[in-house]
Amino acid sequence: MRGIYHQLKNIRRDKMCILSFLLPVIVGLAINLLSDVSFSTLGETAFGIVQNDLTEEMADWVEQNGSVTVYEDMEGLQMAVIDPATQMIGVVRDSGTIKSILSGDEFQLYKTIGDKLPQLFEEREAMRLVAVEARPAQSDSLWPKSLLIVITMVTAMFMGCTFNAMSIIGEKEDGISFINEILPMTQQEYVFQKISLGLVGGILSTIATAFACMKIEIEQLFPLLLLIVLSAFISALIGMYIGRFSSGLMAGIVYIKMIMILFIAPPILFYLMIPADSIGRILSYLLPSSAAFYGLMDLVNGRGQNISSYFAVLLIHCVVWMLFYFITSSGSKNSTE
């Protein structure tokens, strides 16, 4: 315990460090303040029309199919369609029917819709007659917001990793690591002390972020806490690895940057692109942040069926990486003696 006290004393004066643990919480609060409207339109097909061009019936029909932005003139509409940031489809009147305008760089989905739009409009009567049996939605339309929340939380967890890595590299640079070797302290004690600071920081920061931007129900509380503790532990452990393998500050930063990209980007891609029950999803569990990411995403969306498998995956990662750390460290110690 005394060791941890010394470690704490070490960071007490470090205001910047405390601030960076607080930052995800501030971002969480900011996400809460963002309006839901701008997020829900993200999933919709965007249409652009020109003022006083379409008949009322046409305009109503277009509105049933997506979000509509009205432009003052044709030039404004064309600019908006060409704007590479959007996938907007322009809709204009073409004698009795409608015609669509595309910029040619759209995804296949929007290109097909754009090409088919006049036909869909012509056949709108058939649409009224058909019976539609729709099962309730699984995902809600605010998924971009959930994604942002989860990215913020994963980043908060990642702070523990950065903190540990930097603290160890700092000790290496200052020569404290040599002093540590002759102190009456076992490798386990050292690892325990070092991990706990980053871990506690990461956990506190993530929990505060969660409370700032999630609506948490009582029964979700325990799974959420467990998920955060396990993931933050892995993150802190990765920080230890980085600290051990990097020779200097710059190398440390390179590793942190690579791992940060690896930690955050692939789970998002997997989540969006690989179907939930495919072999690819199972393979993606090799990356520890995937399970954490899927778990958080499910909790944010109020689903909890798969949560136990995420725990299992995270637990396996914790144990394996921890054991590997000790095995390799005793190996390297023997070789130096």
Binding site: Q64, A126, M127, V132, A134, S139
Partner: peptide
């Protein structure tokens, strides 16, 4: 007797409308 659309809702009414219309077309 008449074709019936069967799907899971996407969470957005407008998208579901387009999906139905596209399938029928």
């Amino acid at each position: 007797a008449a074709p019936k659309i069967i799907m899971t809702a996407s969470g957005l009414d407008s998208t579901d409308h387009t999906r139905t219309a596209y399938a029928l077309s």
